[in-house]
Protein backbone atom coordinates (compact mmCIF):
# COMPACT_ATOMS: atom_id res chain seq x y z
CA UNK A 1 0.00 0.00 0.00
CA UNK A 2 1.01 3.59 -0.45
CA UNK A 3 2.08 5.85 2.36
CA UNK A 4 -0.45 8.40 3.62
CA UNK A 5 1.96 11.16 2.52
CA UNK A 6 1.97 9.85 -1.05
CA UNK A 7 -1.81 9.50 -1.03
CA UNK A 8 -2.06 13.11 0.13
CA UNK A 9 0.23 14.20 -2.74
CA UNK A 10 -1.94 12.28 -5.20
CA UNK A 11 -5.10 13.86 -3.79
CA UNK A 12 -3.61 17.35 -4.05
CA UNK A 13 -2.40 16.61 -7.59
CA UNK A 14 -5.91 15.54 -8.54
CA UNK A 15 -7.05 18.98 -7.43
CA UNK A 16 -4.50 20.53 -9.81
CA UNK A 17 -1.67 21.23 -7.35
CA UNK A 18 1.42 21.19 -9.59
CA UNK A 19 3.84 21.37 -6.67
CA UNK A 20 2.38 18.19 -5.20
CA UNK A 21 2.68 16.50 -8.58
CA UNK A 22 6.29 17.68 -8.87
CA UNK A 23 7.04 15.83 -5.63
CA UNK A 24 5.44 12.68 -7.04
CA UNK A 25 7.58 13.04 -10.17
CA UNK A 26 10.71 13.37 -8.04
CA UNK A 27 9.72 10.25 -6.09
CA UNK A 28 9.03 8.03 -9.10
CA UNK A 29 11.03 9.31 -12.06
CA UNK A 30 14.07 7.11 -11.34
CA UNK A 31 11.91 3.98 -11.31
CA UNK A 32 10.12 5.06 -14.47
CA UNK A 33 13.36 5.81 -16.29
CA UNK A 34 14.94 2.51 -15.16
CA UNK A 35 12.15 0.36 -16.51
CA UNK A 36 11.92 2.37 -19.74
CA UNK A 37 15.67 2.06 -20.26
CA UNK A 38 15.61 -1.68 -19.56
CA UNK A 39 12.94 -2.03 -22.17
CA UNK A 40 14.34 0.22 -24.88
CA UNK A 41 18.07 0.19 -24.14
CA UNK A 42 18.29 3.74 -25.46
CA UNK A 43 18.83 6.64 -23.11
CA UNK A 44 17.01 9.32 -25.12
CA UNK A 45 14.03 7.04 -25.77
CA UNK A 46 13.83 6.10 -22.11
CA UNK A 47 13.83 9.80 -21.17
CA UNK A 48 11.10 10.60 -23.68
CA UNK A 49 9.00 7.68 -22.45
CA UNK A 50 9.48 8.78 -18.84
CA UNK A 51 8.35 12.30 -19.66
CA UNK A 52 5.35 11.10 -21.64
CA UNK A 53 4.38 8.67 -18.88
CA UNK A 54 4.21 11.43 -16.27
CA UNK A 55 2.28 13.71 -18.61
CA UNK A 56 -0.23 10.87 -19.08
CA UNK A 57 -0.41 10.30 -15.34
CA UNK A 58 -1.14 14.01 -14.83
CA UNK A 59 -3.83 14.03 -17.50
CA UNK A 60 -5.58 10.94 -16.16
CA UNK A 61 -5.19 11.54 -12.44
CA UNK A 62 -8.97 11.86 -12.26
CA UNK A 63 -9.28 8.16 -13.09
CA UNK A 64 -6.83 7.09 -10.40
CA UNK A 65 -8.23 4.64 -7.84
CA UNK A 66 -6.74 4.45 -4.36
CA UNK A 67 -6.66 0.63 -4.38
CA UNK A 68 -3.87 0.51 -6.94
CA UNK A 69 -0.28 1.59 -6.25
CA UNK A 70 0.88 4.64 -8.19
CA UNK A 71 4.04 2.76 -9.16
CA UNK A 72 1.97 -0.12 -10.60
CA UNK A 73 -0.07 2.37 -12.59
CA UNK A 74 3.11 4.05 -13.78
CA UNK A 75 4.60 0.67 -14.80
CA UNK A 76 1.45 -0.02 -16.81
CA UNK A 77 1.69 3.30 -18.67
CA UNK A 78 5.41 2.84 -19.31
CA UNK A 79 4.88 -0.69 -20.62
CA UNK A 80 2.26 0.59 -23.06
CA UNK A 81 4.56 3.39 -24.19
CA UNK A 82 7.45 0.96 -24.59
CA UNK A 83 5.28 -1.35 -26.69
CA UNK A 84 4.27 1.64 -28.84
CA UNK A 85 7.94 2.45 -29.21
CA UNK A 86 8.71 -1.11 -30.27
CA UNK A 87 6.08 -0.90 -32.98
CA UNK A 88 7.53 2.35 -34.31
CA UNK A 89 9.86 2.45 -37.27
CA UNK A 90 12.45 4.14 -35.12
CA UNK A 91 12.68 1.04 -32.96
CA UNK A 92 13.04 -1.24 -35.98
CA UNK A 93 16.00 0.86 -37.04
CA UNK A 94 17.57 0.80 -33.55
CA UNK A 95 16.53 -2.76 -32.72
CA UNK A 96 19.95 -4.03 -31.85
CA UNK A 97 21.29 -0.78 -30.50
CA UNK A 98 21.88 -0.79 -26.78
CA UNK A 99 23.87 1.97 -25.20
CA UNK A 100 26.80 0.54 -23.31
CA UNK A 101 27.80 2.34 -20.17
CA UNK A 102 24.23 2.94 -19.11
CA UNK A 103 24.80 1.32 -15.79
CA UNK A 104 27.45 3.78 -14.74
CA UNK A 105 27.59 5.05 -11.18
CA UNK A 106 27.91 1.59 -9.67
CA UNK A 107 29.43 1.55 -6.24
CA UNK A 108 32.28 -0.75 -7.14
CA UNK A 109 34.29 1.04 -9.82
CA UNK A 110 36.35 -2.08 -10.46
CA UNK A 111 33.30 -4.00 -11.64
CA UNK A 112 31.93 -1.08 -13.60
CA UNK A 113 32.90 -2.18 -17.08
CA UNK A 114 31.86 -5.80 -16.53
CA UNK A 115 28.51 -4.75 -15.10
CA UNK A 116 27.94 -2.27 -17.90
CA UNK A 117 28.65 -4.94 -20.45
CA UNK A 118 26.44 -7.45 -18.69
CA UNK A 119 23.56 -4.94 -18.48
CA UNK A 120 24.02 -4.09 -22.13
CA UNK A 121 24.00 -7.76 -23.18
CA UNK A 122 20.98 -8.65 -21.05
CA UNK A 123 18.98 -5.70 -22.38
CA UNK A 124 20.04 -6.56 -25.92
CA UNK A 125 18.92 -10.16 -25.40
CA UNK A 126 15.66 -9.00 -23.81
CA UNK A 127 15.00 -6.87 -26.89
CA UNK A 128 15.04 -9.98 -29.03
CA UNK A 129 12.25 -11.58 -26.97
CA UNK A 130 8.61 -11.49 -28.04
CA UNK A 131 6.94 -8.51 -26.34
CA UNK A 132 5.05 -10.46 -23.65
CA UNK A 133 8.17 -12.36 -22.65
CA UNK A 134 10.16 -9.13 -22.62
CA UNK A 135 7.61 -7.39 -20.40
CA UNK A 136 7.51 -10.28 -17.95
CA UNK A 137 11.30 -10.66 -17.89
CA UNK A 138 11.95 -6.95 -17.32
CA UNK A 139 9.31 -6.64 -14.62
CA UNK A 140 10.00 -9.88 -12.77
CA UNK A 141 13.73 -10.49 -13.16
CA UNK A 142 15.13 -6.98 -13.52
CA UNK A 143 12.59 -4.87 -11.65
CA UNK A 144 11.98 -7.79 -9.29
CA UNK A 145 8.26 -7.19 -8.93
CA UNK A 146 6.18 -9.90 -7.26
CA UNK A 147 4.22 -12.15 -9.64
CA UNK A 148 0.84 -10.65 -8.68
CA UNK A 149 2.06 -7.14 -9.51
CA UNK A 150 3.45 -8.38 -12.84
CA UNK A 151 -0.02 -9.83 -13.51
CA UNK A 152 -1.60 -6.47 -12.67
CA UNK A 153 0.76 -4.50 -14.92
CA UNK A 154 0.65 -6.84 -17.89
CA UNK A 155 -2.98 -7.95 -17.56
CA UNK A 156 -1.94 -11.60 -17.76
CA UNK A 157 -2.88 -14.33 -15.30
CA UNK A 158 -0.24 -16.04 -13.14
CA UNK A 159 -0.06 -19.07 -15.43
CA UNK A 160 0.62 -16.95 -18.50
CA UNK A 161 3.20 -14.88 -16.61
CA UNK A 162 5.07 -18.03 -15.51
CA UNK A 163 4.90 -19.56 -18.95
CA UNK A 164 6.28 -16.40 -20.61
CA UNK A 165 8.87 -16.11 -17.88
CA UNK A 166 10.07 -19.66 -18.50
CA UNK A 167 10.61 -19.10 -22.24
CA UNK A 168 12.21 -15.70 -21.61
CA UNK A 169 14.66 -17.13 -19.06
CA UNK A 170 15.58 -19.98 -21.38
CA UNK A 171 16.34 -17.55 -24.23
CA UNK A 172 18.31 -15.23 -21.97
CA UNK A 173 20.30 -18.11 -20.53
CA UNK A 174 21.08 -19.38 -24.02
CA UNK A 175 22.13 -15.90 -25.14
CA UNK A 176 24.31 -15.36 -22.10
CA UNK A 177 26.03 -18.69 -22.75
CA UNK A 178 26.84 -17.52 -26.28
CA UNK A 179 28.14 -14.13 -25.14
CA UNK A 180 29.84 -15.22 -21.97
CA UNK A 181 30.50 -18.89 -22.58
CA UNK A 182 33.50 -18.93 -20.34
CA UNK A 183 31.77 -16.88 -17.71
CA UNK A 184 28.84 -19.28 -17.52
CA UNK A 185 31.21 -22.23 -17.40
CA UNK A 186 33.01 -20.56 -14.52
CA UNK A 187 29.71 -20.05 -12.78
CA UNK A 188 28.87 -23.68 -13.27
CA UNK A 189 32.06 -24.95 -11.69
Amino acid sequence: MQSPAELELIRRSQEGDQQAFKKLVEMHQALAYAVAFRFTGIRSEAEDITQEAFVRVWKSLGKYREGIKLSTWLYKIIMNLCLDFQKSSRHKRDRMTVEVGSADRTEDEGKRQDDAEMVSVIIKLAKTLPEKQQMVFVLRDLEMLPVDEVCEVTGMNAGKVKSNLYYARMTIREGLTKYFGEFIKQLSR
Binding site: Q18, K22, Q29, T50, M118, V119, L142, I172, L187
Partner: peptide, 23 residues
Amino acid sequence: KIHEVGGIKPMLADPNRMTTDIM
Protein backbone atom coordinates in the same frame (compact mmCIF):
# COMPACT_ATOMS: atom_id res chain seq x y z
CA LYS B 1 23.72 -12.73 -11.86
CA ILE B 2 20.64 -11.38 -13.64
CA HIS B 3 19.22 -10.22 -10.31
CA GLU B 4 22.55 -8.60 -9.53
CA VAL B 5 22.33 -6.74 -12.82
CA GLY B 6 18.72 -5.90 -11.97
CA GLY B 7 20.00 -4.31 -8.80
CA ILE B 8 22.08 -1.89 -10.83
CA LYS B 9 19.54 0.77 -11.61
CA PRO B 10 20.07 2.77 -14.78
CA MET B 11 20.36 6.34 -13.54
CA LEU B 12 19.03 9.51 -15.09
CA ALA B 13 21.85 11.73 -16.32
CA ASP B 14 20.16 14.81 -14.88
CA PRO B 15 17.15 14.12 -12.63
CA ASN B 16 16.49 17.83 -12.03
CA ARG B 17 16.33 18.53 -15.75
CA MET B 18 13.92 15.62 -16.17
CA THR B 19 11.62 16.97 -13.43
CA THR B 20 11.76 20.45 -14.96
CA ASP B 21 11.00 19.10 -18.44
CA ILE B 22 8.03 17.10 -17.18
CA MET B 23 6.63 20.08 -15.27
